[in-house]
Simulated scan of single mutants.
Amino acid sequence: MKKGWKFAFLGLLALNVLLVLALVIGLLLPIEEEPLPEASPQEEAVKFHVQSNKEDLNKVIKMFVEEQKANSLVDYNVYLRDQVELYGDVAVFSERIDYKLTFEPEALENGNVVLRQKGIKVGKINLPVSYVLKAARDAYQFPDWVKIMPNDKIIYISLDKMELKSNLKVRAERIDLKKDDISFTLLLPVENK
């Protein structure tokens, strides 16, 4: 009986060591990086300039997030404050662990948006940004127009590739959350006759 207990203990210990090794190796492997997406060519369109604020944009973001969460195992919410804040929780074993990611948004000349990572907190622990972004990119399905780039610590949002009703396209012109100054251009494609 004593020998069986010792073998079971050593087997369990070996399994734990293997799991920890696999986790460490997975975290230390180099991160494969994709280049920034190319902006889609602009077709002829009628332009509508929209000035907005964080409160109204939070309502729109909530609608998009609710649609995306319906097909996801991850629970999260996105809020615009003085920076973009993403809150959520993830299941680890039998517990739920809270996380918070903060980003600084930037409207690019091509109308797309870059979210530059400012901080990540899981529970009470600050974690390395690139590893967490890599884990998120590898573990979850994001829309085609969202690219997570761990080496650069950014999330690239290709607004020009986002599919909206009536083939409507969106271009970010200015995003200054601290001044609550947000402007977009809506592009409605028209046929040239």
Rank of each mutant, 00 (worst) to 15 (best):
N16M: 15
V17Q: 05
V17W: 08
V17K: 02
L18N: 00
L18V: 10
L19C: 03
L19P: 05
L19A: 08
V20T: 09
V20H: 04
L21E: 05
A22K: 13
A22Q: 14
A22G: 15
V24T: 13
I25D: 01
G26A: 08
G26S: 04
L28Y: 07
L28P: 08
L28S: 13
L29D: 14
L29M: 10
P30S: 11
P30R: 02
I31Q: 07
I31D: 10
E33L: 04
E34A: 14
P35R: 07
L36R: 15
E38K: 14
A39E: 04
A39F: 01
S40K: 05
P41G: 00
Q42S: 15
Q42A: 13
Q42W: 15
Q42Y: 09
E44S: 07
A45G: 03
A45Q: 06
V46N: 13
V46C: 07
F48A: 07
F48M: 06
F48T: 05
F48V: 12
H49T: 10
H49Y: 14
Q51H: 13
Q51M: 13
Q51S: 13
Q51P: 05
S52P: 00
K54L: 03
K54N: 04
E55S: 12
E55V: 09
L57M: 12
N58K: 06
K59E: 11
K59L: 11
V60A: 05
M63S: 15
V65L: 03
E67T: 03
E67A: 05
Q68M: 15
K69A: 11
A70Q: 15
N71T: 11
L73D: 14
V74N: 03
D75L: 10
N77C: 01
V78F: 06
Y79Q: 14
L80C: 04
L80A: 09
D82G: 01
D82I: 04
D82E: 03
E85F: 05
L86C: 02
Y87E: 00
Y87N: 02
V90T: 13
V92W: 04
F93R: 00
F93W: 07
S94Y: 07
I97F: 11
I97G: 01
I97L: 05
D98N: 11
D98T: 00
Y99D: 01
Y99S: 00
Y99L: 02
K100H: 10
K100E: 11
L101V: 07
T102I: 01
E104F: 02
E104A: 07
E104T: 11
P105L: 05
P105C: 01
P105M: 02
E106K: 02
